[in-house]
Computed example of a mutant assay.
Amino acid sequence: MPVDTHDGDARRPPFNAAAARRLREALGMTHAHVAYGIWAAYGMRLEPAVVASWELGESAPTEAELTALAGALWCAPAELLGTPGTLREFRLALGLAAADLALRVGMDQAGYERLEAGGRWSGTDRQAAALAAELRLPLPALIRFTGQEERLTELLTSAATTRWQGYVRPVGKLAPLPKERLQQTLQELHEEYHATMTASLSWTGGDASDEAGKAGRDFLDSIVAEFWRRVGEPTS
């Protein structure tokens, strides 16, 4: 699915050009119809050629233009974005302005915009819950956006390499999932890590300890993604 991300221009969100064309054609609209709809409803004067260039992936709409385009095409902004990956994309997918979201979450707008730009989370647990509710964030995204993924990595690494039983409660505080599911997942990660190390050490030829160390590091490097997969929480 073609997606034009236009990296480097903070005003232009990732844009699904093919979806825009498909939605327009399904409505029986021309580029001129879309341009007129954007002007009539949002007061933005655009040439039909601009709409055509968006669909060709030659350029992409700004945040305001994306919202207007979604309105002209009678669709949600999310349909023009694809699967959101960043905090900003989750917000744009719901057609929310940064100021409105900050107000709903109980943050000042400047603080929220710094967070969107990659700043560190400094909010409260209550604000985190409000952010998750307003943006309909999956648990992996909430943990990533609130700066807790590094801590989760540390806990999962310790659970896999030492005694997993002692990490059920700490992991559960970060990822409030059913205790039985957490226990099963941590036990599986622990067993798989040690099985990987044992298998690597049993190889003949070369330096077995080096091979085991590399296999173990590779396993731990992907442990967070593997954790989410095993507990059934989508990461994208």
Rank of each mutant, 00 (worst) to 15 (best):
M1R: 15
T5E: 15
D7T: 09
G8I: 08
D9P: 12
D9S: 13
P14L: 07
F15C: 11
N16R: 14
R21V: 14
L23R: 07
L27Q: 09
T30S: 08
T30F: 07
H31C: 06
H31E: 04
A32I: 04
V34Y: 08
V34Q: 09
I38T: 02
A41T: 10
G43A: 00
P48A: 05
W54R: 00
T62F: 02
A64E: 14
T67V: 10
L69P: 07
A70V: 06
G71L: 07
G71A: 02
A76I: 12
P77F: 09
P77R: 15
L80G: 07
G82R: 00
T83N: 06
T86K: 04
R88D: 09
R88N: 07
E89A: 12
F90I: 10
L92F: 02
A98M: 03
L101N: 03
L103P: 04
R104P: 02
R104H: 02
R104L: 01
G106Q: 04
G106F: 03
E113Q: 02
L115C: 04
A117Q: 05
G119E: 01
W121D: 00
S122D: 03
T124L: 04
D125G: 10
A133N: 03
E134I: 00
T153D: 06
L155N: 07
L156R: 02
T157G: 12
S158C: 08
A160S: 03
R163L: 06
W164P: 02
Q165C: 03
Q165G: 09
R169P: 02
K173R: 06
L177H: 13
P178N: 11
L182F: 08
T185S: 12
H190Y: 13
E191F: 10
E191M: 10
E192R: 12
H194S: 13
H194C: 13
M197Q: 15
W203M: 15
G206W: 15
S209R: 15
D210T: 11
E211N: 12
G213C: 11
F219T: 14
L220P: 08
D221S: 13
D221L: 12
F227K: 02
V231I: 15
G232S: 05
G232P: 02
